[in-house]
């Protein structure tokens, strides 16, 4: 047996091991934003529906840290997320919503059905803030400190178990 003839086998075993190892690792497809720990970009969005104020960067500056929640009435995980946002609101957290590519009547209907955790809702009709803030999808939630810096990004819907983590992040940002 010549050693050279075993080289293909050795290379193959390495690839096999790599494949097996990667397969056993949990797959994380989320793309973290490059904007974390940077100032929130300038923006000014009109109200998403009647009876609300729109949202701008200035609304985050000064006072307690706030949550910026990217959502939409057409987004199913946002329905699952609604009770958690409600719970955060009850903890005294101010949540400012950004409705992505939405219609005023749909936004109103969603709030009526699933409750309203927001103090303000801006309408982002062409996902412009989403792109600037580095969001990869809907829903996403950002912790913004009083100086207007992005401190933490939560990708996907907020589950019950995430609430303590978000509260801790809000505390750190104080």
């Amino acid at each position: 047996m010549r050693l050279a003839y075993a080289i293909p086998l050795a290379i193959f075993l390495f690839i096999l091991g790599l494949g097996g190892y990667m397969l056993s690792q949990p797959k994380d497809d989320a793309v973290p934003s490059a904007m974390i720990s940077k100032p929130l970009p300038e923006f000014e969005l009109p109200p998403a529906t009647e009876g609300f104020a729109g949202a701008s960067r200035e609304d985050f500056v000064g006072g307690e840290p706030k949550l910026l929640n990217i959502w939409a009435s057409w987004c199913l995980p946002c329905i699952a997320e609604a009770p958690q946002l409600e719970a955060l609101k009850e903890e005294g957290v101010e949540i400012i919503g950004i409705a992505i590519r939405d219609k005023p009547e749909d936004v109103a209907q969603f709030l009526e059905r699933h409750g309203n955790p927001y103090t303000r809702i801006g309408a982002d009709e062409i996902s412009s803030l989403m792109i600037e803030i580095g969001a990869s999808g809907v829903p996403e939630t950002y912790v913004i400190d009083g100086a207007g810096n992005i401190r933490y990004q939560h990708i996907g819907d907020i589950r019950e178990e995430h609430i303590p983590l978000l509260l801790a992040k809000l505390g750190e940002a104080r």
Partner: peptide, 27 residues
């Protein structure tokens, strides 16, 4: 990923087996 595991096992059996035979027989 479950299918991935299955294919990886098949890969190990066929190609691993073939290359092992090759390593011993080729000379």
């Amino acid at each position: 990923p479950e299918r991935g595991t299955f294919i990886l096992i098949l890969l190990a059996l066929y190609i691993g087996g073939a290359l092992t035979i090759f390593a011993f027989r080729a000379s």
